[in-house]
Design a binder for these strands. Structure first.
Lengths: 224, 224
DNA sequence: TCAAAAGTGTTTGTGGTACACCCATGG
DNA sequence: CCATGGGTGTACCACAAACACTTTTGA
């Protein structure tokens, strides 16, 4: 027997697109203008083309909604319960994308309504997208503990204070400045540039992420 | 436009079934008796039925191959590159299953050849199953660091020495007996039974996994 | 000269790791 | 009584957390 003997489920990708705006984590959502869930907000997504790899489909969605595609993108989980889409059997592969703050200016180019939502003030969502979004946020908070993904939300050059504020927003707690700088330094994931940022107060040195820093350090073993 | 306007990919589940046998981690593989990759070994899997949830399909595969289904089963990753299956566009959702040692006696009930392979002596595999298997092993070794999944490879009752040996096999390194016992105790994930195991030497107390121990402890934060 | 943010070391406490001996049973 | 595996406590070291003042610039 071959694959063609059976009716097949549809396959979609949904991309949870996250950025840092206005000192908050924000998520890009689209207002649905078609049934089902017409008028509800949803995570951007769409069907996977037959000649398109999964990650390529996710990058296409990302580009369609934000105009960027060369950003951090990671597969999260595949949702395949029965009845999660009233149109029929739909399996959805969820991705998370992290968009650097200054790139996240325009949200969508076509006619549909799209906007950034602070993660603390989300509207009711279509389908099981609430579950998908919560999953993405959990993964982000978890991953930031042992992997330098936080930098993917920063512009190319940034001050240490800005980086610290980003971490504080993601983790939801204040951090000590000296300890923060020591650990960042020891992790060897950023390098100084020779430029400075002038604003109020003393100018701050700008740093950049070291692209050769593939430091995914092993977490501490707990069991046992 | 609707889902039905497009040709759809096929969706399969592949289940990496792992157990502890003969002081080794072993994986259940099936010898393919059909093209493509006829004669090669493959991870058990099959097409997802149109009226079957993803995890249900994985449990069905698991039950067909091992006779058990009430075991640890976790979704790993979804593989959706073009060209990964010569029969056409196939998207595969990979799962990992951990089968307790004494349940892993019979491997397969139908005519196909199936056997357990030590993970250090794997044969050439069909499709991209080598990649899937390596992914599963990485996830297992990683997850055992912060979550009590190791117990899912143990029988219902076990001695502390047997548990330690299991951890040593999974992690591939010797552990200190006193430190091991202290950490297991502090984690509060097992409880003593009032039965003992007699063999050579002094009888050992048998313990069981505390099912209410949902201790997925947060790993130490590294950045920063 | 004042406000505002940048930058910089030391002390203390907790937790991980290393390590050796006595105990209970069966043959 | 001997072989075999079961069971137990402490000392040291490394790293994380707490903590306050000086420096540089622009207004």
């Amino acid at each position: 027997m071959t694959a063609e003997d059976y009716p097949k489920p549809s396959v979609t990708v949904d991309v949870v697109i996250i950025t840092l705006r206005d000192k908050e984590l924000q998520v890009l959502l689209i207002k649905r203008d078609l049934a089902p869930y017409r008028g509800k907000w949803a995570v951007p997504g769409g069907f996977v083309h037959i000649d398109e790899a999964l990650e390529a489909a996710a990058r296409r969605e990302l580009r369609e909604e934000t105009g960027v595609s060369e950003v951090y993108l990671e597969q999260l989980y595949t949702f395949g319960e029965l009845g999660r889409d009233p149109r029929g059997r739909v399996i959805s592969v969820a991705y998370i994308a992290l968009v650097p703050a200054p790139l996240a200016v325009t949200a969508g180019s076509d006619a549909r309504e799209a906007r950034w939502w602070p993660i603390g003030e989300l509207p009711p969502l279509a389908f099981d997208h609430n579950q998908i979004l919560q999953y993405a946020l959990t993964r982000l908070r978890y991953k930031i503990e042992y992997s330098p993904v936080g930098f993917r939300l920063m512009p190319e050059k940034f001050t240490l204070s800005a980086l610290q504020k980003a971490y504080e927003i993601i983790l939801g707690e204040p951090l000590d400045k000296r300890n923060f700088r020591r650990r960042i330094n020891e992790a060897k994931v950023i390098e100084p540039t020779d430029t400075y940022h002038s604003g109020e107060g003393r100018p701050a040195r700008l740093y950049r992420f070291r692209r050769d820093a593939i430091a995914e350090v092993k977490a501490r073993r707990l069991f046992p």
